[in-house]
Design a protein around this nucleic acid. Structure first.
Length: 463
DNA sequence: TCTGGGGTCCTAGGACCC
DNA sequence: TCTGGGGTCCTAGGACCC
């Protein structure tokens, strides 16, 4: 027994922390508002709030000028209007513009390393050790981060970001948060606990309002307080996985990898109505519309799913979900809608609904219809008979056999006749057609070694 | 005129199966 | 004399994140 315990302890010490500050975290500052101020000079220096502008809207991003008046993310827009002065811009948001700017920044990160993990449109981790080309001393990564920030500002027309670098995702994220906006913090190896322990527990990812309240009740206010609690205490307080996670994070024991390509697990669309709805016919039409959007996104990403979930929020803000798992995966809006309507009938609409949502999960690679045709072609032109030329998708590969980790290409970016190797997040393993630089026409199957080469070539898609 | 929309992960109970 | 145990799937809800 003694031996096992000691071994586990040594193992934990071994894997807990990297030796070099090789993990970088970038967080773009007040991103949506910053893009608006960049594109509209009249907004510069003024308070800008981006988010829902309707009666039930909330703030997505407040510029630093708006934050000075108390506007905050997740606050109702009505509250932000009360706090901000006349002349504050309230904008609904232009997501295509944010996406374009984000893509430029992510591209700059990928020049640093092949291991880039976007967390959201304005945030990403980079594993600098994966490139093998960087000086990973504190001075080296500091200089690297300075250069990165300059390139981001130049390439985006002045959008700034805050960078944190450390021996783990935890420390990198903490670092990027310490000097916002336009910050740069490198946490030197060995300094982790000095930085971490004075901070409030709420700065740890995973400590939201509910966990914070429970921790405060037992006298835990700082990360240092948290580190003084035993593992069994924390498990009793927060559950098995969460408790163990808190125990480790409080000790800066974090070896989470930077994962460039997390598979999509669900696709959903939801809508809060300007006024609560009760009319069943109106609600059914809303379901049809949302199922249509979900089905379209599934088809564009060449995935389908088995579980349909209906989410509803009643007049009193109570929220519930009802789901049904189908025998086969689908991306058919009509089937999704019919399932969701049935779930709505079972759940009822008494008192009125302020929100409906339709989602699909249990996703797998698209396995019906014509994956490879130009999307403008009519459905009828598709030959789906058993004798048709091979165009189905093989079962997905395990994560360690993805043929091009990190490649970010989607079906809808492909022209007619072009086929490539991946769905949105998961692997599609058969493709054919010329490659760029121009290559021979070829067909690859799931076990073809060319699908997972040790050293992936720089294959690019046309256009 | 309180409280968006898109997600992820975890837990827990019951069904079902070997 | 107990009442088995463990794994997986399905469903519902909750916490959390940006």
């Amino acid at each position: 027994m003694m031996g096992v315990g000691t071994l586990a302890f040594l193992w934990a010490k071994e894997v807990g922390v990297r030796r070099e500050p090789s993990i970088l975290h970038l967080d773009l500052d007040a991103f949506f508002a910053a893009v608006e101020q960049r594109d509209k000079p009249s907004l510069r220096g003024r308070p800008v709030v981006v988010g829902g502008v309707g009666g039930r809207g909330v703030v997505a991003t407040a510029s630093y000028e708006a934050r000075a008046y108390g506007a905050r993310s997740a606050m109702s827009t009505a509250e932000a209007r009360r706090r901000c002065p006349a002349g504050t811009a309230f904008l609904g948001g232009r997501f295509a513009a944010y996406r374009r700017t984000s893509d430029v920044v992510m591209g700059l990160l990928r020049e640093l390393s092949p291991l880039v993990e976007p967390v959201s449109i304005d945030e990403a981790y980079v594993d600098l050790a994966a490139s093998g080309e960087h000086d990973l001393s504190v001075d080296g990564v500091t200089a690297l981060a300075r250069g990165l920030k300059e390139r981001i500002a130049a390439a985006t027309g002045g959008v700034t970001g805050s960078v944190g670098i450390g021996t783990s995702k935890l420390m990198a994220k903490i670092g990027s948060d310490l000097q916002k906006p336009d910050g740069l913090v490198v946490v030197a190896p060995g300094q982790e606990l000095e930085v971490l322990h004075p901070l409030p527990v709420t700065r740890l990812g995973g400590v939201g309002p509910a966990t914070a309240e429970r921790l405060h009740q037992v006298g835990v206010k700082t990360v240092g307080d948290l580190a003084a609690r035993s593992l069994p205490d924390l498990v009793a307080l927060a559950g098995r996985a969460h408790g163990a996670g808190l125990h480790a994070l409080a000790r800066a024991d974090d070896d989470r990898a930077v994962v460039p390509d997390r598979g999509v697990k669900s696709v959903s669309h939801e809508e809060t109505f300007e006024r609560d709805l009760t009319d069943v016919d109106v609600l059914a039409r809303e379901i049809d519309s949302m199922a249509g959007r979900v089905g379209e996104r599934l088809r564009k990403s060449a995935i389908s799913g088995r579980t349909v979930t209906l989410k509803l929020r009643r007049y009193d803000f109570t929220t519930l979900t009802r789901s049904q798992t189908l025998p086969q995966p689908t991306d058919d809006a009509r089937l999704i809608a019919a399932t969701a309507r049935r779930l709505l009938t079972e759940a009822g609409t008494a008192g009125g609904l302020r929100l409906l949502g339709v989602g699909v999960s249990g996703l797998s690679v698209y396995a019906q219809g014509d994956l490879f045709a130009d999307s403008d072609e009519p459905e009828e032109a598709t030959d789906t008979s058993p004798d048709a030329p091979a165009r189905t998708v093989e079962p997905e590969l395990p994560a360690d056999k993805r043929w091009w980790p990190g490649q970010d290409v989607r079906h809808d970016q492909l022209g007619a006749g072009w086929v490539w190797g991946r769905g949105l997040g998961r692997v599609t393993v058969r493709f054919e057609g010329p490659l760029t630089p121009p290559g021979p026409v070829r067909t690859l199957t799931a076990d073809d070694p060319a699908l997972h080469p040790a050293d992936p070539p720089d294959w690019r898609l046309p256009g």
